[in-house]
Write a protein that binds this DNA or RNA. Structure first.
Lengths: 321, 321
DNA sequence: TTGTAAGCGTTATCAC
DNA sequence: GTGATAACGCTTACAA
């Protein structure tokens, strides 16, 4: 392992001069630079990145905490974060959490230990106040509306769009509305927003038996559908948490030889397009970009991005040839 | 910034003893440990991760080079890699490449600079021999069949399955087969495998005008469909590179009010299920797991995972209620 | 323009 | 059990 000292010795110059050459700084004469560069080339030397980071006190690593890797919310968010990181020479480190408090705490401790320059929580199990406490060790950004907790955040403003969705259902005369959510309202801002919007539009909370939580995959959604069917809960419509999950629901109804209720998707996935579902695009890529910007700038403040209800394109007529 | 020296001084013990306490090693008396721990707690001290890495000469970071973030091949592979990394305390660092040689080279140089303990190329633009040259600086794993290049690899064995796919088409009497690929055969092992399989089954190479490359997104696929249609290329079937891309193709035909040809998907995506397409599951999650194992073990050798042609479930009868 | 030397904060070896 | 001290490999005042 050849190091900067070796280069200094063999070239006959000092470590600092070698360092200047390495970092393309000024105040090095052309012939000195050339002489040193020659030794560098000769020994096939490259500086050690970790030593550099230590000396500079900065890693250019941003940790991104992800409960799951296979959910569109997270992949889209990650996509945005990567995009933003890419143009700034920061590196993205993936931190799987499964909403596990011990793991999340570990990542916060890693930040404290300077393993990352900043941390982005795409979602979290720990209370916001717990995260907030670690901000003294470095920038921490969350991807939800933090309400009264003064923590930097970039998030999709969903409430108005959920209201749009329920208004659509109301206009169509639907009253018995199923709701699919990944986590229950007490811990999930998203779920809370759906409940609030339902209340605003219909004047009542959603019936508890029509709300299914812990639905993340299409298979989960299929099970939720099985539940609705076997419990003989006659639904007019279901607000699903993802177009793909709507597919799972549909599967359940089809297997029971029933026509599914009117479905609204989320995430603007391809499966929704195929099925001609209305969907909600939360613009998570953009949210990711903003989250990253907040993280590296160290700025405080919240950035809300408006969601959007998208109605399906009319299905084209197919001419049989 | 309080460091190990501070703890040593304030506790009255030496740096080495403090280090032993930090690393939960033996040979420290209980009362010494307690005394030191008290100072640690009092000063709210944690060791610096970067200094640790430097001293140990290891980062526990594995770099994963990804041309795109939004393609199922990469997300599934990444999913597997994360899963494997998670259970071994390694961290996954995302390295976007866009098949850009300069970027790929930069990542290889980063490996050389010890920024990562190992590197996984999910795909690459640089020739294998170029990657192979950097193996002296650390383990490098690719996710394709490297054939005669002696570089560690985990990959989906696609050839036999592509043959199955073409056999299916042949049995159905189809002869004019379109093919969608992300990159042309000279640089893409995947594309080569499709061509070879076509040759094996039909005895001829695919007609050049029926092969569309540079197709990665559904929109690209839609453009490919536009091409087939406007060029009046009557196709019996199309082997698409992804169920989602099949959706794009389908969109093109529908917009031209035509019935799409018989479509075969890939990646076993939900959109394919909805459309009832045959699809090819390449088991990329498992490939990712194996790739990671190779990377951290530093083993040499190749691991091939068999792909699988999946036929659609029969569409259920729907009873109108 | 170049050199000296003091950091950066650990871990590891070896002596006691 | 504990402590000196030398790595680890670089950056950066400050001096010359």
């Amino acid at each position: 392992m050849t190091n900067i000292r070796d280069i200094a010795q063999l070239s006959g110059y000092s470590i600092s001069t070698v360092s200047r050459v390495l970092n393309h700084q000024n105040y090095v004469s052309d012939k000195t630079r050339a002489a040193i560069q020659q030794v560098i080339d000769q020994l096939d030397y490259v500086p050690n990145a970790v030593a550099r980071d230590l000396s500079r006190g900065k890693t250019f690593n941003v940790g991104v905490v992800l409960p799951h890797a296979d959910h569109p919310y997270f992949t889209q968010l990650l996509h945005g974060i990567m995009q933003a990181a890419f143009s700034t020479n920061y590196r993205v480190v993936l931190l799987p959490s499964k909403y596990n408090a011990t793991l999340e705490l570990q990542y916060l401790e890693d930040l404290r230990q300077k393993a990352y320059d900043a941390l982005i929580f795409t979602s979290h199990g720990l209370p916001l106040t717990a995260l907030n406490r670690y901000r003294r060790y470095g920038p921490i950004v969350v991807c939800e509306n933090p309400h009264d907790c003064p923590i930097p955040a970039a998030y999709a403003e969903r409430l108005a769009t959920y209201q749009d969705a329920f208004e659509l259902l109301k206009q169509r005369g639907y009253r018995h509305i199923g709701i699919l959510a990944s986590r229950p309202a007490p811990v999930s801002a998203t779920c809370q927003a759906m409940v609030t919007a339902h209340h605003t539009v219909f004047g009542t909370d959603p019936a508890p038996e029509l709300m299914r939580t812990d639905v993340t995959t299409p298979s989960d959604a299929q099970r939720a559908g099985d539940y609705y069917i076997t419990q003989h809960l006659k639904l007019d419509a279901i607000l699903t948490n993802g177009d793909d999950n709507a597919v799972g629901l549909r599967r359940a109804y089809h297997q029971h030889h029933q026509t599914p209720p009117f479905l609204i998707g989320q995430e603007h996935q391809l499966s929704g397009e195929v099925l001609g579902l209305p969907t909600i695009d939360h613009h998570f890529v953009e949210v990711g970009i903003k989250a990253f910007d907040l993280a590296v700038s160290g700025q405080t403040g919240n950035i809300a991005i408006a969601s959007q209800l998208l109605l399906p394109d009319p299905q084209p007529q197919i001419k049989r040839v």
